[in-house]
Amino acid sequence: MKILVTGFDPFGDDLINPAIEAVKQLPDEISGAEIIKLEIPTKFNVSAQAVHDAIEQHQPDYVLNIGQAGGRFALTPERIAINLDDGRIEDNAGYQPFNHTIHEDGQTAYFTQLPVKAMAQAIREAGLPAEVSNTAGTYVCNHIMYQVQYMRDKEFPQIKAGFMHIPFLPEQVTSRPETPSLSLADDVRGISAALSAIVARDGQADVMTVEGKTH
């Protein structure tokens, strides 16, 4: 089994992005699965092509994109991606879309094929905070999650794909009072636990645990 794991480069005012830093430190093999690591740019119009090229080259069974979610306290596997780009800030190419449809012939939204409840459960069992998220936002994180689902819909039906957000690193919150953070070592441990859950649930439905939200 092959799992392609991607992480974004730094964006905005931050000089570091926990996503790519954690991805770079992942083991090359987890639970018998080969882990293929890829850095992708925080750019709406470039990131998808980088992932597309890697899928063509490596032919992975799974794709897990990792992104930073400043302000969240937990590692959060994403349940759904929506067909909308609406940038709060410019991306690293200076592009800031407003109410932009990603693909006119794409679905309004795509649900992940990853066992997000099992992933969250495995992360918590590793001693780290985790919960299933029902919104990946409208920035480049949602964009890449949607784009990979679109690729699966139109070109690569054999893959299963999804996204997970991780919190700021401690060094990113020194000037952000009362903002949660997680160490890089814990990020790596949490992502590894999530990947182990993906392998363990291969060919099976997700676990039946409560991960819903009231609002």
Results as ranks from 00 to 15, higher is better:
E78C: 09
E56N: 14
Q121F: 07
G137H: 05
H103Y: 13
F111I: 00
S47N: 12
G106Q: 04
V140P: 12
Q113F: 12
A122L: 04
P115V: 05
A50C: 13
H100A: 15
M151T: 01
Q96D: 06
A126Y: 07
I40L: 03
A54G: 06
F156V: 03
P41R: 00
L75W: 04
N142Y: 05
P115C: 05
A109G: 06
M145T: 03
V116P: 15
A120E: 09
Q147G: 09
D85P: 02
H58G: 10
D105E: 09
I89A: 02
V116F: 05
P77N: 07
F98Y: 14
Y146Q: 03
E39Q: 15
E155T: 13
N134V: 06
H103L: 04
E155A: 08
R88V: 15
Y146F: 06
K154Y: 00
I89H: 11
S47R: 04
V140L: 11
N99M: 11
A54E: 11
Q59N: 14
A48R: 10
A130N: 02
G67K: 02
E131K: 08
H52T: 15
A109V: 09
G87N: 05
L128F: 05
G127C: 07
L75Y: 07
N142M: 05
H103V: 09
R124M: 10
Q68V: 12
A109P: 00
F156R: 01
F98N: 14
G70E: 10
T112P: 15
Q107E: 15
V51F: 06
I102G: 07
D91M: 10
A122F: 01
Q107L: 14
G70I: 08
T42C: 15
N99F: 03
F44I: 07
S47P: 03
V46P: 09
T138G: 00
Q57H: 14
F73T: 07
D91G: 11
R72T: 13
I80P: 15
T112V: 04
A69I: 02
Q121R: 10
Q113K: 12
A118C: 01
A48T: 10
V140I: 13
L38I: 13
E104N: 11
S133Q: 10
L128G: 03
Q149N: 09
I66M: 05
L128H: 01
D86L: 03
I144F: 01
K37F: 05
M119P: 10
I89R: 13
D85T: 10
G127S: 08
K117T: 00
Q121N: 12
A126P: 00
N92T: 05
H143D: 07
A126Q: 09
D105T: 02
M119N: 08
N92G: 05
H103N: 10
M119D: 11
N83L: 06
L84R: 08
V148D: 02
I55R: 01
Q96R: 14
V148I: 12
V116H: 07
Y95G: 15
N142L: 03
D91E: 12
K37Y: 03
P129T: 00
M151F: 09
Q121T: 04
G127L: 08
Q158T: 11
L128N: 02
T76N: 13
E155V: 06
P60E: 01
G137M: 06
R72W: 10
Q107W: 05
P97H: 01
G94M: 04
C141N: 08
P97F: 01
N65C: 15
T135Q: 13
T135Y: 15
